[in-house]
């Protein structure tokens, strides 16, 4: 099938970008979206043109490297799916697709569809360490974790940090990401010693990175390839409030 692409082309962070039209006349429905871009890029290289830059790594939907906006929806129209796992069978012959990078002040464009998501790494590092005994392996089941808590923590820990939540949010808020990262440790016994401190520090870093604030529209939840729920944002609010109120020093 034939797919018409309008792709955001931007040389580097300091250059202005623009949409450029491309046609891929022979798309196979079994291709993933990224494989289709690979085909386009091979042709561009053959023609001596600059290939389209996009981030990708595992192409199995589990690493969080890939992602761009397709027709206004991060990772495209298929729910719970990253672009690398989005297959061309979900599109029709002649479809016109607009590809744009994540748009956020905190995610500057590096080139074309690739953005710098180091802000997420800095939020994670701001959370700091957790107190665990190192050295010999701990006894299995020495720390009891109720099944329900383990499941909830796993649901939150599924976040691959792709940034689709920020891209979907009209405020470019990182609260779903930060909420998930705060939640997955807050739900486990291992996360308790530094729980309050972590919530305060990660929220402070989130603000310092110039992400916006949540307006509870829940668009992030709808586009998240890992189905992270906004319940995690509420948990972040709970931890932040209790930490602000109960912290004794500082």
């Amino acid at each position: 099938m034939r797919i018409i692409l309008h792709i955001w082309r931007q040389k580097d962070a300091n250059s202005p970008g623009k949409m450029v039209r491309y046609e891929v006349p022979d798309v196979n429905e079994h291709m993933s979206f990224l494989e289709m871009l690979d085909v386009l890029n091979e042709r561009l290289i053959e023609q001596g043109e600059d290939p389209v830059t996009f981030d990708h790594d595992c192409r199995e939907g589990i690493c969080g490297a890939c992602g761009f906006v397709i027709n206004g929806i991060p990772h495209g129209p298929q729910p719970s799916t990253t672009v690398c796992q989005l297959h061309m069978r979900h599109f029709k012959d002649g479809d016109e697709l607009y590809l744009e990078p994540w748009r956020a002040k905190a995610f500057p464009v590096i080139k074309d569809l690739m953005v710098d998501r180091s802000a997420f790494d800095r939020i994670i590092s701001a959370g700091g360490f957790i107190s665990v005994p190192t050295g010999s392996a701990p006894d299995g089941n020495a720390i009891p974790v109720p099944k329900e808590k383990a499941d909830l923590a796993m649901d939150a820990a599924q976040c691959i940090g792709c940034g689709a939540c920020v891209a979907a949010c009209p405020n470019a808020s990182a609260m779903l990401f930060t909420g998930a990262k705060i939640s997955h440790l807050a739900l486990l016994p291992q996360g308790q010693p530094e729980r309050r401190d972590r919530a305060l520090k990660m929220v402070a870093q989130m603000n310092a990175e110039a992400f916006g604030a949540c307006t509870n529209i829940a668009e992030c939840e709808a586009v998240c390839p890992k189905d992270i729920k906004i319940e995690n944002i509420a948990r972040m609010f709970r931890d932040f409030i209790s930490a602000s109120v109960l912290k004794r020093a500082g």
């Binding site: 744009e100 956020a104 002040k105 916006g212 307006t215 829940a218 709808a222």
Partner: peptide, 21 residues
Amino acid sequence: LWWMNRAARPTGYIRQSWVQA
């Protein structure tokens, strides 16, 4: 908050869709 939110998205999308908002 509105001011902060606007500053967080200096460049908007050319195509904007809403899934559930």
